[in-house]
């Protein structure tokens, strides 16, 4: 198991609907940028309509992170738009290019369309599958592996690591995080793939269970909030514990 997270080149974030891919992608981007790396983030969610990376675009831009999106006038279009800059990003990812992909196999299918770009990429992409065990379709090791198979088949890429994102929004307790961590360890064991990191909301970072984890921990400062909530201020402080 990885004791630290080494991210280079292309990092693709996949997972089932509502697993928290966007929060993981955004917070990873901020963390890596704060560590002095040049980060670019592409919103490849072509299937979902609400609560996408594009909603955090202003906060990310303010931190100097380039967000690759469809043109402003088409951000709410009810049709999939894949901008050509994404293929360019894959061929020349720079220090770190993070691709936030849509949910399930349906959302991951766009990656297959970028197959030629991946073949010409300077290095193999890392592909992290985000899992929230409190979502209905990924509550057991078997279901997580089934979701992985669906995503790999649709994307024609291989998952290379897991991100555990165990939460029930505001109702998350230390016990939920512990249960989630246990399931992720079992999943890492069954799949032979590393648990790249656990994601934990900023308000729960100081619960004792976090110190016992055998993997890096990513602080989630929630950005995808309903209109009666304000997003947490993004910051690269205190994110990946190594």
């Amino acid at each position: 198991m990885a004791a630290a997270l080494h991210l280079n080149g292309i990092l693709i974030i996949v997972g089932n609907y509502g697993s928290g891919k966007t929060e993981v992608a955004v917070n990873l981007a901020v963390d890596q940028q704060a560590k002095g790396r040049q980060v670019r983030l592409a919103d490849l969610d072509l299937v979902n309509l609400y609560f996408r990376t594009r909603e955090a675009r202003h906060a990310l831009s303010a931190l100097g992170i380039e967000v690759i999106l469809p043109p402003e006038g088409w951000l709410q279009a009810d049709l999939p738009i894949l901008v050509p800059q994404v293929a360019g990003l894959i061929r020349r990812p720079g220090e770190l290019a993070i691709l936030d992909v849509g949910g399930d196999g349906v959302g991951a299918r766009v990656l297959a369309a970028l197959g030629e770009a991946f073949q010409n990429a300077p290095e193999t992409a890392q592909v992290f599958q985000v899992v929230n065990p409190f979502r209905p379709n990924t509550d057991t090791v078997a279901r997580c592996l089934a979701m992985r198979a669906v995503i790999e088949s649709a994307s024609r890429l291989k998952v290379t690591g897991w991100v555990g994102n165990a939460h029930l929004m505001d109702e998350t307790t230390a016990d939920h995080i512990r249960q989630g961590h246990d399931l992720m360890l079992a999943l890492a064991d069954a799949s032979g793939l590393p648990l790249a990191c656990m994601a934990v909301a900023d308000g729960l970072m100081h619960t004792p269970v976090v110190d016992t984890m055998a993997c890096p921990v990513l602080t989630i400062r929630r950005q995808m909030v309903p209109p009666w909530r304000r997003p947490v201020v993004l910051s690269g402080e205190d994110t990946i514990l190594q």
Binding site: G18, N132, F134, R135, P136, H167, L168, E171
Partner: peptide
């Protein structure tokens, strides 16, 4: 026990 669901999924299950 509680699960995290999108409103549309919850409507279907309900």
């Amino acid at each position: 026990s509680k699960v995290l669901m999108k409103g549309n999924e919850a409507i279907a299950e309900a």
